[in-house]
């Protein structure tokens, strides 16, 4: 149990996908301008991360590994994720239209999001059990959510700021991301020592 909590907390704070592993930078910079779209995107990411881990982990363990096909990991995972996202979108559209309305636009975008492919591959590389892999996916998704929400707050403050001309737009956003990421570095070492 302690191990699960450590995995969860370190995925959220220490190995934060966006701010320390640099995965999923495109949506982090692109969709973080408004709080509601940042929230919608993050919820969709958490959902897809959990779903794709639940599907890719058994595929790797029970189909690819016993048959010596481990090298097909990349190609199989990306296809599974792409198919899964399409499937989720169709199911949501048919049965839960209200949820589809709020998450639908973000779902196709997630197919080519490196955070989702990253989490599924990392779960295998780290040698997690199925439960640990699911907890890690949840933590990674929550970490993404936290970073997006925090950063959309930072960006709304930037709107009114007087910025040098060449720094307008992307450069100042990146500098702000740098400072946000600096604040997350403060968590380093905290989680390990909490349970020691």
């Amino acid at each position: 149990m302690t191990k699960l909590i450590i995995i969860l907390l370190s995925a959220v704070f220490i190995n934060n996908y966006v701010l320390s592993r640099f995965l999923g930078i495109c949506p982090f910079l692109g969709v973080s301008k408004k709080l509601d779209s940042a929230t919608g995107m993050s919820i969709a990411v958490i959902f897809v991360m959990l779903m794709s881990t639940a599907v890719t982990y058994p595929i790797q363990m029970y189909v690819l590994n016993p048959n010596g096909l481990g090298y097909l990991q990349t190609i199989v995972f990306i296809l599974v994720i792409a198919a899964l996202v399409q499937l989720v979108e169709i199911v949501l559209k048919r049965y839960i239209p209200s949820l589809h309305k709020s998450l639908g636009v973000y779902l196709p975008l997630i197919t080519t999001n490196c955070a989702v492919l990253g989490v599924t591959i990392l779960n295998i590389d780290e040698g997690y059990t199925f439960l640990e892999a699911m907890v890690n996916s949840l933590g990674s998704g929550l970490g993404f959510f936290l970073a997006m929400v925090m950063f959309s707050g930072v960006r709304s403050k930037l709107e009114g700021a007087d910025i040098p001309k060449s720094f307008k737009g992307l450069p100042i956003t990146l500098i702000a991301a740098s400072i946000t990421s600096l604040s997350f570095m403060g968590f380093g070492g905290v989680i390990e020592n909490m349970f020691a």
């Binding site: 640099f22 060449s166 720094f167 307008k168 450069p171 990146l174 500098i175 991301a177 740098s178 990421s181």
Partner: peptide, 21 residues
Amino acid sequence: ILTMAPGGFFIFGLLIAAVNK
């Protein structure tokens, strides 16, 4: 700090600003 995550964002921001300028 430049080899860590914040430094990456920072240098990238500066480079793009330089290109804009």
